[in-house]
Simulated scan of single mutants.
Amino acid sequence: MKVIPLLLAAFIGAVAGETCSGAQVDAVGFTSLDATIVTKIAYIADFTLSCSNGAKDVSLYAETIDGIVGIARSVDGVKYQVSWVEDVAYAVSGERPIKLYDEQGYAALRKAQRGNEDTSSVLPIATINLYHPGAYRGPWVQSETMAILAAIFIYYYALTQKNKLMA
C-alpha cells in the first residue's frame, strides 16, 4: 500500500519536468522591420539552452512585454523558440528583455502575481535581450505630394518664363 504514494510522487516528478541550473543561452533574434503594410510587429527569438546539471527537455516559459508565454521546443529538445506580436504604435526601438523560467520558476512567478507580490524576487534561469531596430513606417512625405508640388513648381516656372518672353 505504501508503493502507490511512491509511484504517484515519481510520476508527478517526471511530469513536472527537470529544472535547469547554471543555464547558458545562445540566442538569435528576429523582428519585423516593415510597418507600412502590417499592423503588428513580430518578435521571434531562437535559442539553445545548455544546463550545467545536464537537464534535457526542460519545459520553459518566457516573460515578455506581451506577458507570460509558453516556449516551443524542438523535437530533439535542444532548440527553443519564443515569439509574440505587438501593435506598431507601441513597438519602439531598443532592447526587449525576455526572462526565461523553468517549471519551478514559472510556478513561483504565477504565485507572486496571484498574491499581488513583488515579482522581482523570482529570478529567471536566463535572460535574452532581443534588439528591435525600429520599423519603417514609410516616407515622411508621400510621393503623390512631391509630384503635385513638382507640377506646381514647373507650371509656375513655365508661366513666369512665358511672361518674360512676352514682355
Rank of each mutant, 00 (worst) to 15 (best):
L165P: 02
S121V: 14
Y80K: 01
T160Q: 12
T36Y: 13
W140P: 11
S59H: 15
Q142I: 09
P133N: 00
F47H: 00
T64I: 03
P97I: 05
M166G: 09
L60A: 14
L123D: 09
A10T: 05
S143C: 12
K99A: 13
V141E: 06
L60P: 14
P139S: 08
S52E: 15
I98A: 02
T160R: 12
V25S: 01
R137E: 09
A42G: 12
I71A: 07
A45S: 15
G67R: 02
A135W: 08
A35T: 04
A27I: 02
V28W: 00
L123P: 00
I128A: 01
V28L: 00
R110A: 14
F30Y: 10
L123S: 13
A107N: 11
G134D: 03
N129L: 09
A158P: 00
K40Y: 14
R73H: 06
G70F: 06
E86H: 09
A147I: 09
A158Y: 00
T160C: 11
V82E: 00
E86L: 10
A158K: 04
I128C: 03
S52P: 15
Y90A: 10
S143T: 13
I152H: 02
L123W: 05
T127M: 01
I41N: 15
A35E: 01
Y106R: 13
D87W: 13
